[in-house]
Design a protein around this nucleic acid. Sequence first.
DNA 1: AACGATACGGAGCATCGTTCCGGTTAGCAA
DNA 2: TTGCTAACCGGAACGATGCTCCGTATCGTT
Lengths: 179, 179
Amino acid sequence: MSKPKRADARRNEKTLLDAAAAVFVASGVDAPVRDIAAKAGVGMGTIYRHFPTRADLIVAVYRHQVEACAAAGPALLETASSPHEALSRWIDLFVDFLVTKHGLAGVLQGDGFATLHAYFLDRLVPVCAQLLEAAGLTAKVRPLELMRGVGNLCIGAEDDNPDYDARRLVGLLIAGLRA
Amino acid sequence: MSKPKRADARRNEKTLLDAAAAVFVASGVDAPVRDIAAKAGVGMGTIYRHFPTRADLIVAVYRHQVEACAAAGPALLETASSPHEALSRWIDLFVDFLVTKHGLAGVLQGDGFATLHAYFLDRLVPVCAQLLEAAGLTAKVRPLELMRGVGNLCIGAEDDNPDYDARRLVGLLIAGLRA
DNA sequence: AACGATACGGAGCATCGTTCCGGTTAGCAA
DNA sequence: TTGCTAACCGGAACGATGCTCCGTATCGTT
């Protein structure tokens, strides 16, 4: 179906992905597109041809980790001691993912809303739904709502920020889910 | 101490405040500064002389409401049936404030971090601390942490958005505070 | 080797926040 | 009333950023 790309195109795509990952770690996901292009040693046009929008680039960079998180849901449901435990552990995984990427949470409901949500959430919400179902908590929150709430709580949590521990707050939120 | 301003300056300041309030309601707090200047019928220079930074303008526009919220804390502690109740009610007030201003919550931890935090949080955190103290919850969260968490949960809550009810999530967070 | 399809680079456009400065005016003193 | 000056005003201009466009270079096939 998909036409095979030219060799230089394939090479550049990988180069860009690597450069983007590096820049995201160094300067956060808000890093100027120009910086990424420079780091990769390519022009602006190249970056936008491969990733039509900043959101597409972010999605591509983190796709693997999102997949892993999605896959962990059903797995936890099997191995954890209870559905509640599974949900709690899964949320922890999600929080870890967000907190370790500078500003990823912040960008998750900013402008790139459309594409980022379309992927991140569409991929993870069903998993969340399954876990909530198993825990019998569907009446308390809708899956999307919970995901967005957790995502929001992770904003500004720079992992080493002593003034704001997103994990603790998310823990309280989950705790509130059982009252 | 402060020198009396010129008549035109005082007039423009009020004009700007009104225009800003109107534009914020219509287009959210992220509205371009140019729009506000245009609405007020003044130039860019004027706006920046009165309010050195966008954050200063926002603070000025919402100062009254923040003061009211701060004042409500001690009052609730007197009238509510319990310290927990007082805390819960006060948080509701704070959430209402944020949710009814398009995007205010979102801007509260973006870039204007410095000035906005310096005012909004410095003003409200002590009140929150007092309420937490009265409720005996100081071991569960630090006041600043709770405020930021609640603020974050309000991001993207457009008051009429059926997919995201910030009030419910904040409710769960507070509920989790008693487990 | 030649040629058409595809990709590349980076100048260019539009939008924002913010700064700067020449022209204007309020408020006061003579 | 008339000047004078400090304070104020307007908006052009600057730097940063996201994104588009198109002439040029390169690939892969004939």
